[in-house]
Amino acid sequence: MTTTYRRPMRLLALFVMLLLVLITLFPIYWVVRTSLLPKSAIFSNPGSLLPSTVTLSNYGRLFGLYDSATAQKMGGVGLEFNFLRYLSHTIFVATIITLTQVLFSAAGAYAFARLHFPLRKQIFGLYLGALMVPGIVMTIPNFILVKDLGWLNSFMGIMAPSLLMSPFTVFFLRQFFISISRELEEAAYIDGAGKFMVFFRIIVPLSTAPLGTISIITFINIWSDYMWPLLVGSSDKVRMLTVALGIFRQQAPATGPDWGGLMAGAALSMLPILLLFMIFGKKVLNSIGFSGFR
């Protein structure tokens, strides 16, 4: 980069980075290490960095390679588990929500940042307020609403509350839109462009970084959502990955979690999204990262 930090500063910065990477990655490594252990070895040698014995049986269980009796002998839950199926549900739901939520929220955010209309401040205040209502209040009324609409155990029911907006997304994008320079917009208006034209041709292209970031954030938030999909979509035909993995962590009242299965599931469900982030994120963040803003 162009900045001119002096050498010792740079070394210190690199050291701090190394430390941060270590702190971040070590527990993740522990997830992987544990996912490779058979049940009988989970608790032995807690101080050793490498797994004492290595097995892929936890992963096998996730893909439903064993029948329930064998799975139970391995110390897992005696359930058929179809990782790919739950994964496809999650990808489907998260993709649709990300597309619609970011689009509609961006439109709203643009209106709040640039357009003038009666009650603008008040409505934005309400949106901000929605960010602060503890989620627990909304769960039960929303559940009853979705049930009345006949959307229980359907993808529509899982998606409904997040489809049109999230206060967080609107707030996030508005903060970015206010900081965009008005020059280009002014020029476009002089050239006779309408508001929609300005939004799609100027605001959206100028905001690839925040739009990309919020898309990733939205996608991952939906990806890891648990409570809502559990309530409205516990049936197998719409079950999301997080809900399916929930059974690995609480088998019976007092039994401990199925550590091997849980950690294998966690590691595996991180992978696709990490891949996605690498591909999608690289495109979004690098393109603006180096070419500057214009």
């Binding site: 509609f104 929220s105 439109a107 709203g108 643009y110 209106a111 709040f112 357009l115 003038h116 209309f117 603008r120 409505i123 949106y127 509350p161 489809l163 049109l164 907006m165 609107v170 508001k195 939004f199």
Partner: peptide, 11 residues
């Protein structure tokens, strides 16, 4: 302006 905010407002 309202066209811009109506979808999110409905949600």
């Amino acid at each position: 302006a309202y066209v811009f905010i109506i979808p999110s407002l409905a949600g």
